[in-house]
Design a protein around this nucleic acid. Structure first.
Lengths: 132, 132
DNA sequence: TTGCAAATGAGAACTACTCTCTATAGCGAC
DNA sequence: GTCGCTATAGAGAGTAGTTCTCATTTGCAA
């Protein structure tokens, strides 16, 4: 997993993420764990999710309101983007345009290095739209 | 400008943004105003920038750390993206790929509506790279 | 079984932002 | 010019989300 030790907390967080298809906030994950009877500190949830995101084991993104969302992705290593429902978090992986060459050319053109990009799509999914 | 009244505060914020090419946070703008002798409340800076962003008078984006940055753009109405230096905020407007048709097709494919997208580039500019 | 560093948890702290409420001040009418 | 209405401003409290601190616990190699 992340560090060197396998703990009850990390195992529980990993297991929860495996059974969860959609993006969830750290707070939601904390609540879901509590509902499963896993009493894990919020700080530990944040720490673990952060470490997993750094290790590339989960994908993370930020909503327009500044909240971080996490999700275990089917294809963690390959580059992809997400279409996320802004009300329920339902997530679809989408194959974005290939931006690698664009990134390289704009970086070179303007003398920038270490250029990263963020591309995410937010919308309202069918069931949330009809629920309204 | 935004609402109906022209106030000292709004004029000062507008003038500052005009002389500023790069993305700045609300807090930085507040500090810059104070350095110019404009004693304007932080809440007013936030309110004004928020209103300007809603009105399309300034562009806003969020950094990876969840901070909102603001900038008066050369082409406010036309759709464009930004390459932003993560240490000094230096900004270049870039012509991104045309995502409109992609957005429409993925929205239709997955039954999503009101789909928006965010695409920003963050890097290190030449002077910040050599300063290190 | 022991020792020790990694990991946890509770709660304080922090950051960025928003709200509340009273005072101030644009600006159209006179 | 001045009056009056009400949009706007400012101070400071409040909020949400996240991170830090530090004492305690625990995984795991020896």
């Amino acid at each position: 997993m992340i560090g060197q030790r396998v703990t009850r907390q990390r195992t529980a967080i990993g297991a929860l993420l495996d059974g969860l298809g959609d993006f969830r906030s750290a707070q939601q994950i904390h609540t879901l764990l509590a509902e499963r009877g896993e009493d894990i500190g919020l700080a530990t949830v944040y720490r673990t999710l952060g470490a997993m995101a750094t290790a590339g084991e989960v994908d993370s993104l930020r909503t327009g309101t500044g909240e971080s969302l996490f999700r275990r992705c089917a294809r963690p290593s390959t580059h992809h983007h997400h279409l996320v429902c802004r009300s329920c978090g339902r997530t679809v992986e989408v194959q974005g345009p290939n931006l690698e060459s664009l990134v390289r050319s704009i970086a070179a053109e303007h003398g920038f290095t270490d250029v990263e990009h963020t591309l995410e799509f937010f919308g309202t999914c069918q069931s949330c739209a009809s629920a309204r």
